[in-house]
């Protein structure tokens, strides 16, 4: 539809400008911080940096990437993402498959479903959650970051709703041919749901990468922190005890501000890298769960 009236044309132009401005508003702060991270400490300190680095330098990144604490926290994050995603996805697939069955072919299905869905509505809150994990002996271990959130009920619901849209005849004919539930899940349901699984998998990866609070609370020593928890302590809370003496000599060339900017950008980098794949899937994924019979 094309506007012919003057007011209509004016609206069209204003609308384009407004939406492009909104789009830029979402990315410019990140670009600005990126520019600061590549600028010299003097330029950043003098406030000369806008959207492009001034006195371009890699120094801040060199400084951050030689820091043992930073690299170690990156390693913890990677372990957490790999293990956490594997655990989440296996449980989501099995649970989603079982709960997508009708009550008459899966006795107790409704009870099971309510058992899980209730946890979306009620939770014990922060202190009992902490005490349970402590009593389970998980403090300071990778298990504390993976097991308490191992069953993402919301994703299970998404997947079970998707499984229900698959034709029942596939399953029935496989049964006739002698296949059991494990075979049907592995050979029919999983191959047919790869886009849905990719969506949920990417969201899970992002969720594990971005999680910071559990690491901060459940790990007793900073060397066990995943990256986002580490960033919380050094970038947000300015915990200077984590800066050691060899750091001081380099601090002349970089500044607190450029270092923070570099760490922030490195913390966002994996998300920016998977974002194109994410975007391909998540629009479909968001709509996926709402398709019901």
């Amino acid at each position: 539809m094309v506007y012919t009236s003057f007011g209509g044309k004016l609206f069209t132009v204003a609308n384009y400008i407004l939406l492009i401005a909104l789009g830029l508003l979402c990315i410019l702060p990140l670009i600005h911080v990126g520019a600061v991270s590549f600028s010299s400490s003097t330029a950043a300190g003098a406030g000369n940096v806008n959207l492009w680095p001034v006195d371009f330098t890699w120094k801040s990144y060199q400084f951050v990437l030689q820091k043992k604490e930073f690299l170690r926290s990156m390693e913890v994050s990677l372990q957490r993402v790999l293990l956490g995603t594997a655990v989440n996805m296996s449980l989501t697939v099995m649970l989603g498959y079982a709960l997508s069955k009708e009550s008459r072919s899966f006795f107790g299905r409704t009870w099971y479903a309510w058992f899980f869905v209730l946890t979306i509505f009620i939770n014990g809150g922060f202190i009992p959650w902490y005490l349970v994990i402590k009593e389970a002996g998980l403090l300071n271990s990778l298990g504390a970051l993976v097991l308490p959130g191992a069953v993402p009920v919301f994703n299970v619901v998404l997947l079970l709703n998707f499984f229900r849209t698959l034709p029942k005849e596939l399953e029935e004919s496989a049964f006739v041919d002698g296949a059991g539930h494990w075979t049907i899940l592995w050979k029919i349901f999983i191959p047919l749901s790869l886009p849905a699984l990719a969506t949920i998998g990417l969201f899970t990866i992002v969720g594990h990468w971005n999680a910071w609070f559990d690491g901060l609370i459940l790990m007793n020593s900073p060397d066990k922190y995943p990256l986002q928890s580490y960033l919380q302590t050094v970038v947000i809370n300015r915990d200077l005890s984590l800066v050691n003496s060899t750091d001081i000599s380099m601090l002349a060339e970089v500044s607190d501000r450029t270092l923070k900017a570099a760490q922030t950008l490195l913390g966002a980098l994996p998300i920016l890298l998977v974002y194109p794949f994410l975007q391909k899937y998540f629009v479909k994924g968001m709509v996926m769960g709402s398709v019901k019979e």
Partner: peptide, 28 residues
């Protein structure tokens, strides 16, 4: 015997949720 695998598929998640979701609720 046919639906036994379905119960097995639910079990690991059930135990985890029992401990880490219902545990804290009891802890209230």
């Amino acid at each position: 015997s046919r639906q036994l695998p379905l119960h097995l598929m639910v079990m690991p998640a059930l135990l985890l949720v029992l401990v880490f979701s219902y545990g804290p609720i009891a802890g209230l």
